[in-house]
Design a protein around this nucleic acid. Structure first.
Lengths: 161, 161
DNA sequence: TATTGTTATACTCTATAACTATA
DNA sequence: TATAGTTATAGAGTATAACAATA
């Protein structure tokens, strides 16, 4: 009558937690006309002006075709500019507008509040472990091992099953 | 040139980690003709025979309409049965078939191996913190506070912003 | 009237192939 | 030839409204 059997799996809990986060952050960003993907793109562009689309796609780990509509949205809202690169006329350089910088500042605060809301009840240590664990999982998905080089042999799947 | 600014947010890391998990578990379940949602449904039904669809939808936190196709898929594969409830002829009782039980057993092992693969490099303690943290986030999304009743006042968002 | 399961539908996110214009 | 950006498209997952059968 419960999902106890599934709760042992990281993926099941993460799916449910991420769904909750997705809903909350979407609501938090709505007043700014942003969603998770446009916010993420704007945040990276804000920190790295003159970034190219393909570089941004790599950083955000999204496919180039899917980035196009995200940038269209940001450009239409006059939050970023797409300028032809002088040294490579195929490429665009992405930069935030003043308006984009201002909106980003507010949106970052809103997302920080959202984050605090969703992680309420977790200690700073637990939160740090959470973030590191998710980075580790992501790296494992890319087939990377950790840097320690002592236990992992690249074959087994032993840990705590 | 990086996503450092976003890495401070739990949601960003979780999105990327979940994407990695989703890909890996999908591949792990493919040989069994299952996907994450059909696996989850089968796992709950396997543990709670004669479960009703609406109860299953509640447990898995998915909308009733979306459960229909999932169960169609499991029924077509002869992994579960849908039997009219004797006491309420609107309702169906969901039970695993023998075949469903056998497949579930193998699929659980495959998912456990997937889980071990994705969490490789995490200690048992880190893994436990991860799972508890995600449950906490999910509960925060439902507007629940933790059971401690000392610091939370239901208004603020103070923690580690 | 309310509930169970269903149908239809729409929206978001993701993935791939193929195109254009440059290199 | 290969690369940057684009278009078109298809597939998941999720959400809501409305319906038939039954309570």
């Amino acid at each position: 009558m419960t999902d106890d059997a599934l709760r042992q799996f990281v993926g099941y809990g993460m799916k449910r937690a991420f769904h909750a986060i997705q809903q909350d952050v979407t609501a938090a960003l709505q007043p700014y006309g942003l969603r998770m993907l446009t916010f993420s793109a704007l945040a990276v562009i804000g920190q790295s002006p003159r970034l190219r689309q393909s570089a941004l796609a790599d950083i955000l780990a999204i496919e180039r075709p899917n980035l196009v509509l995200i940038l269209d949205e940001l450009e239409r809202a006059e939050l970023i500019t797409r300028d032809r690169a002088r040294d490579d006329r195929r490429a665009y350089e992405l930069s935030p507008t003043i308006r984009g910088r201002r909106l980003l500042e507010k949106a970052v605060a809103a997302v920080a509040a959202h984050d605090a809301r969703m992680t309420r009840g977790l200690s700073a240590e637990e939160r740090a472990v959470l973030i590191r664990a998710m980075a580790r999982i992501e790296a494992n998905g890319r087939g990377e091992d950790d840097g320690t080089g002592d236990l992992a042999d690249g074959r087994g799947a032993v840990s705590q099953a």
